[in-house]
Design a protein around this nucleic acid. Sequence first.
RNA 1: GGGGCGGUGGCGAAAUGGUAGACGCAGCAGACUUAAAAUCUGCCGGACGUCAGUCCGUGUGGGUUCGAGUCCCACCCGCCCUACCA
Length: 940
Amino acid sequence: MPDKYIPQEIEPKWQAQWVADGLYATVEDPDKEKYYFLTMLPYPSGDLHIGHWYAMTPSDAAARFRRMQGYNVFFPIGFDAFGLPAENAAIQRGIHPYTWTLANIDKMRRQLRSMGAMWAWDREAVSCDPEYYKWTQWFFLKLYDMGLAYKEFAPVDWCPRCNTTLAREQVWGDDRHCERCGTPVIKKALNQWKFRITNYAQELLDGLETIDWPERVKTMQTNWIGRSEGAEVQFSITDDLPPITVFTTRPDTLWGATFMVLAPEHPLVARITAPEQQAAVDAYVQQAARMDEIQRGATDKEKTGVFTGAYAINPVNGARIPIWIADYVLMTYGTGAIMAVPAHDERDFDFALKFGLSITPVIDRPDGRAKSVVWEGSVSDGFEAALQAARIAYKYLTIEGRGRFLGVPLESDAEIDAYTALLLEHLKAGHWADIVGRRWQVVFHDGPLTLDSIAADAAIMARCHAGYELMRQFPTTMAMWQAVSWYRDVLFHHEVGTMINSGVFSGAPGDRAKAEVTAWLAEQGKGKAAVNYRLRDWLISRQRYWGAPIPMIDCPNCGTVAVPYGDLPVLLPEDAQFLPTGESPLRFHEGFRRVKCPKCGGEAERETDTMDTFMCSSWYHYAYVTPYHKAGQRLSPNDTPWDEAAGAYWLPVDQYTGGIEHATMHLIYTRFFTKAMRDMELAPFDEPMLRLFNQGMILGEDNEKMSKSRGNVVAPDDLVARYGADVIRAYLMFIGPWELGGPWNSKGIEGVARFMNDVWSLVVDDGGHAAGPAASEKEVRTLRRAVHQSIRDASADMEAFKFNTVVAKLMGLRSTLKGARAAGLHGTAAWDEALDSLLLMLAPIAPHISEELWQRRHPGASVHVQRWPSWDADAAKEDVITLVVQVNGKVRGKIEVPAGVDEAAARELALADPNVQRHLENKVIRKVIVAGGALVNIVV
RNA sequence: GGGGCGGUGGCGAAAUGGUAGACGCAGCAGACUUAAAAUCUGCCGGACGUCAGUCCGUGUGGGUUCGAGUCCCACCCGCCCUACCA
């Protein structure tokens, strides 16, 4: 019977043998350097996806590579076992979440084992095990003790049909409907537990510089934290009301604040609203409350808002400015109130134009551009001739049936001055012309008025309204100008620039303006420098059953009381009822809810909310060190959730791998957790994971995201049955760079299957080729060169997670070996070295076939305890190289030369090449460059 | 609007500033076979040429350099994330 490669036979055999031998058992060995290699833990959905293979098998290969390099590698696995799908199964099919979850975990363990990964199953942790969530609850109590957990009344997404809150990711689509029943979600205010992650905002930002994470993730976290620097400024209202504090990043535009806007939810709204505006304000506030943030956040939406009837005083110029409410101001960012600078903020500009609010430019245009428009009928004859004489360019414009106008672009102050003088000379009484951009003036026949304040705006418009009936449609000077489309590109800008119309600060250059104004505000007691973050506190309350119960108690006498550490865990009751309404089973479980107050012993109620599952995954990499530590024992606040010696050995994580989708959730939460743990004196380090790698996503054959509805899902179990795990592993690594992902190709995998067959054949048979007579020294040297070059290149690529090129190099080595076998080299020492090297390098990628073949060659010793091969630089060295000869950078000849040929010889050989000579005919050689001993460029 | 990633043969992709397309898939031709599959051998960016070879070619346009897929500047296209963030 032919000795064929049958992965279905050897793979289960070795998987069982490895377990029997304890090959991947975890041992804290202080004599060996540790390496904690972690892959994001899976959710036990019940069916392993090819995406799991793509995330996990290259990760396993990298971990195995480290192990072969001599590190003591810890490569644990577990399950993120709480979450909504289990509860849905309970509601829909009457299966208890615990039963459903454990059955899924059982199935997934089997599927995961078929990958042949080197997981430390002896340290497996399952987050829904009471001995696990006992510690999750313990962390909650510790955070509470530190003042980092607090309860707050906050609006959350709520599905009115399912009667429960939803996580952000369970709200789907632009219309924000419920993932389960399709009902549009609403906002509902509930009493919720939150963690003060914002206390660590700056540290979370600073820490990014200390970790070796992809720039992409760091950027996403930086944006998520959203630090912005500016100032807080107080605007007073009346003596009996507190001032409104605003945050601004542009204190240099303060003189241009011509109105204020409060978020509809702002607490001051109720207190400042004037009686005559009360009805309008109430209606607007109610309407805003019905809309959720996404609807409010639609950028293309028309601005809406209502005047409160109240006024504030601009602290820098004393201007009395109206206070509006509008939903474009968010209560959740900054102070929930803004000073509106319509001349230099696009949103404020739109709002001011829509509601006729005054707009005062206070920052000079950095481009210095100015424009003017003059109606022909407003100037005396000879104006055009005067312009021509003064060499001022102009063009004719027609404005909406109002006749012919002159449009005058103006480039410099001198030109503007000359032009203004001409205007004053030629303007008829009662007429005017505008200058906008570099200057903001309306030039009347008796002199110009400058738009430098709300009062000036009113004065200008009074004259315009009086002068020309048509102007009455424009409430403000800027609105009048905005009607002239030719002006539009110079009316608004948000650049930093020289301050104008700003009292003593007029003329302050842009690069100093912000700092100087901020310092001055502080001096005057009107404001101070401030830093604002976009990051919000982490809401962890979930109104669901299948999560770790929040270990808190509400006592009518003592208030909020923490469950004593020694009473943990607060167990989920097994007999909960899962109602089709989706209401939290804990809320209606009297046995769970009713409890004696730990302080006074009186009747009290348990918190019935459970914790966000991100809480479980924030510390799982610590749990792996000693899963279910102190099982069955009473806990105290002074405990450590893992064996301290084991933790000191393994922590922190050296290399983490996983998908990019967790960039701003899990990866921020776990960093926050670690910093809090450091402050609890549990962790002697600041960051949980020193290096991070994000793999890409595997797509369906149609290059689309895999989904059941598309029918493009690749089922790994079928592939294992057909090709075996090794072929799938190697193919997934070969497909392209790991970080890019890419489409599955059912043909492409065949090439990898052929490769495995070839490797098999190289070891088990001679391919029908007789061993030749003593191989020539040259043949041996050529074979060894290929082997040692392969080791050299594959080592570097493994280090860099470039598995695709590692597989390509091993395929190349396979071809070399086939050639060597045909040449009769098998049986030589060089052949043995080559085969062993190939198997060793293949071991991390395809652990089963390499184990089978290795043990056939070296019975009794696992390939996975061998050292990664090292290369011999001498053996890898080329003795003949191809000298490339270029003329003016174009390749004109290739010459085989001995390696290490000196420059002079290379130059001589190059010039002697017939084709090169042809290209040098009738040319003068200007320069000859010899690069790297392998390339000559002749410049003529 | 902001940020990120990417654009190289028919396809997945290689390429320390130095021979563009390694490796694989698909395709074509041949060998073996009654035949097919499997396997083996060869070809495989485009155009011109009998050969030698020549010209063009890494999204577009510039630049730096003896030499650019690679570095710089400006743009175009695709995907992903984020967004009235004051």
